[in-house]
Structure formats: structure tokens, C-alpha cells
Computed example of a mutant assay.
Amino acid sequence: MKISTKGRYGLTIMIALAKKYGEGPTPLKWIAKENNLSEHYLEQLASPLRNAGLIQSVRGAYGGYKLPRKPEEITAGDVIRVLEGPIMFVEGIENEEPSKQALWLKITEAVKNVLDNTTLADLIQEHEEPKDAYMFYI
């Protein structure tokens, strides 16, 4: 499974809105500028996120988007499924031999587990930790 720019930028939108949770609506123009992304592309991603109930739009001069639920209640899996479709590491595994099927299913379940147990609040917290905390030396 490869996460495209749709999934990556969709998570960027969601993380930005999570950081602003409780502060009112945030314009996509601001998110695009802060992350050096195309506002037009973010608008295309906002529509399916809104239709899925992951974000709400607020119209008007001070409008934008906001989360309808707490960041702790929205997972990375929610976002990725809306923008990328079902989480499946390998397609067509029914034609594989049983030992390979088992491996592909384990990998798929592991990926689903990470995505479904990582909330927007977790992503904000990880973003704020120092980058060198994740450095590994061999």
C-alpha cells in the first residue's frame, strides 16, 4: 500500500485543524500557506472529508473548516480510508499460496492497527516532540 499525496495532504489538513481545535474555523488558505501546498488541491481534499463528517465548513468572512469532534476521537485510519479507500497491503491475495496469504494478512492488520490507534491528538503530540528523540543509531 502506498499513501498518495491525497492521504498525506489530507492528514496535513486534519492535523492543522486539530491544532486549532476549539479556536473557531481555519481557512484552507492559511493551511496551504503554512505548509507550502496548493490551496486548490486542499479544497479538492476537503470535500470528501466534509462528506464523511470528519470536518465541518463554516461560511462567511471568518469562515473556514473545523473539526466536529475532539482530535482524540479521529484516527489517521479514518482520514486515510476516506481519501485512499480500503486499507489493503496486497490485492488479490486469494490467489496466493496459504503461507503468503497469512503474511500479507498480518502486514495488512498491522498497518490497520497503527492507523486505527493513532489519533490526531497523538500526531500533534508526536509533532511537538524533538525530532532527535526518534533518531536511532546502528
Rank of each mutant, 00 (worst) to 15 (best):
N117W: 04
N51E: 14
E91L: 13
E94I: 13
K131F: 14
G63C: 10
Y65P: 04
E126G: 02
M135D: 12
R69Q: 12
I74S: 06
L115V: 08
L49P: 11
I87H: 03
G85E: 02
F89Q: 03
L54H: 11
N95I: 12
K131N: 04
N95D: 15
W104S: 12
G64Y: 02
V58K: 13
D132V: 05
F89I: 07
L83C: 10
R81D: 02
G77T: 05
S57D: 02
V58T: 14
P71G: 07
T119S: 13
I55R: 03
D78Y: 05
Y62E: 11
G53R: 03
A76L: 05
Q125W: 14
E96I: 03
H127K: 14
V90F: 07
D122I: 08
D132E: 15
E72R: 06
L45K: 09
P130V: 05
E91R: 14
L67W: 06
I107M: 09
Y134H: 09
D116E: 13
E97M: 14
N95R: 15
G60W: 05
I138G: 10
H127N: 13
L115K: 08
K112S: 07
A102D: 15
A61W: 09
F136H: 11
N117S: 13
D122H: 06
E129I: 09
E96C: 10
F89D: 03
V90I: 05
G60C: 02
K106E: 15
G85Y: 02
Q101L: 07
K131Q: 12
P130E: 11
Q125I: 01
A102Q: 15
V90A: 12
Y137Q: 14
K100A: 14
N117Y: 09
P68F: 07
L67Q: 06
S99V: 15
V111G: 05
I74M: 00
Q56S: 15
L115D: 00
D116G: 11
D78E: 08
Y62Q: 08
T119H: 10
G92R: 11
D116F: 00
I107G: 10
H127A: 15
F136K: 14
Q56A: 10
A102I: 13
A133T: 14
P71Y: 01
D78R: 08
A52E: 01
F89P: 07
T118R: 05
P48H: 02
D122T: 05
G60D: 06
D116H: 07
F136T: 13
R50L: 11
T118S: 01
Y134K: 04
L105P: 01
N51G: 07
A61H: 08
E72P: 00
K112N: 10
I55H: 03
F136V: 15
A110G: 06
L115Y: 07
P130M: 08
K70M: 08
V82A: 01
E126L: 14
L120G: 08
N117K: 12
T108F: 00
E91H: 13
P86L: 00
R59T: 05
Y137W: 15
G77F: 03
A102F: 13
E72G: 00
